[in-house]
């Protein structure tokens, strides 16, 4: 098979590249930047591999396909921590916890004693919680860097160029994985703004992602190790901008403070904002137009769904197998 061009070196592009190389293809990855960085959504990902928790509001394919993610990332990057995830709510919002339990599976209810045993730094602040034992998390930047190193050492080429997939497709099979950058070519794509923070707070130790339910400000916090935490994330429709709003910062920080007052003394290492690419149903799409395959719409599920989507792209190319998320309505 001839060389396959992949445009976009975020989580979608690299997972597609890895899947194609594993099937014996020769790949070249083209990105407008050299290496990963804050321009890409993947840079700001929480890195929760939490298909069951996502089931609270996501469609069924997210829960099912997302279950492939932890094993895939573990095999390809050794960057996966398998400690489950914990969902808690302040006492006054306990109704939200009951609702979350009803909408999801793969969890068991835990008491305050079990919570304290699992995460001593949550103390006795939360009377009840839900533990999702089979979920995992990873450090997204480490995982992407390792994926990229692995591809390079297996012979993949990386080119820095602001490429137009339509032009590349005139010369051979091209896969457009540019995320929201592809908006001009993919009219029904929309950007959903996400805002997040990286904090350093060595006083607090958490072993697993914790989600705190709140009617207005749901928060997740993912431990990165060495006292570093990722806090996210607002999901804002119809709002965009290059910068985080004061309101979002205020809400994220006060939610963290509610989780453990020691976060009041944390240092803010990074403030991030991105535009997650999504279609109307928040599910990914694979579209094919001759030599051009467009992979997009991973929404907030990049690390969770990219392994499955990458596999589908490989199945399409090598076996002519129609992917589950194939979209033939659009050209």
């Amino acid at each position: 098979m001839n060389e396959i061009i992949i445009i976009g070196a975020g989580v979608a592009g690299l997972c597609v590249a890895r899947n194609l190389m594993d099937r014996g293809a020769k790949v070249t990855v083209v990105d407008r930047f050299e290496g990963a960085g804050p321009h890409a959504c993947s840079w700001w990902a929480g890195g929760m591999l939490a298909p069951f928790c996502e089931g609270e509001s996501a469609e069924e394919p997210v829960v099912r396909l997302g279950q492939e993610a932890a094993d895939w990332w573990a095999a390809k990057t050794q960057a996966v921590e398998r400690c489950g995830s914990l969902v808690v709510s302040p006492t006054r919002d306990r109704a939200d916890l009951a609702r979350f339990a009803r909408r999801t599976r793969g969890h068991r209810e835990v008491t305050v004693d079990e919570i304290t045993a699992m995460e001593p730094d949550l103390g006795t602040r939360f009377a009840k919680g839900l533990f999702f034992e089979d979920e995992a998390h990873l450090a997204p930047r480490t995982a992407l860097a390792r994926l990229r190193e692995g591809l390079a050492s297996d012979g993949a080429a990386f080119i820095q160029e602001d490429a137009n997939p339509d032009i590349y497709a005139q010369h051979g099979l091209t896969i457009d994985c540019r995320g929201y950058q592809a908006k001009r070519q993919i009219n029904d794509l929309r950007g959903v703004k996400g805002e997040m923070l990286v904090l350093s707070c060595p006083e607090v130790t958490l072993s697993r992602p914790v989600r705190m339910l709140h009617p207005r400000v749901p928060l997740y916090i993912v431990p990165r190790g060495d006292g570093v935490f990722m806090l996210g994330a607002t999901m804002v429709e119809g709002r965009a901008g290059k910068h985080v709003t004061a309101r979002a910062l205020l809400e994220l920080l006060s939610a963290a403070y509610a989780l453990n007052p020691a976060f009041g003394e944390a240092e803010v290492l990074e403030i991030g904002v991105d535009s997650r690419p999504a279609f109307a149903d928040n599910l990914p799409r694979i579209r094919r137009d001759g030599n051009l395959i467009r992979v997009n719409g991973l929404y907030r599920h990049g690390f969770l769904l990219a392994p499955a989507v990458g596999r589908m792209v490989a199945d399409l190319i090598f076996d002519n197998k129609r992917p589950e998320v194939m979209d033939e309505t659009a050209t």
């Binding site: 794509l189 929309r190 950007g191 703004k193 119809g238 709002r239 965009a240 309101r247 535009s275």
Partner: peptide, 17 residues
């Protein structure tokens, strides 16, 4: 609407829906 919505294209996608 919030004041911070601005006129960016990404914000417009949802208004169009």
């Amino acid at each position: 609407l919030r004041r911070e919505s601005g006129q960016d294209r990404a914000g417009q996608d949802f208004w169009q829906l």
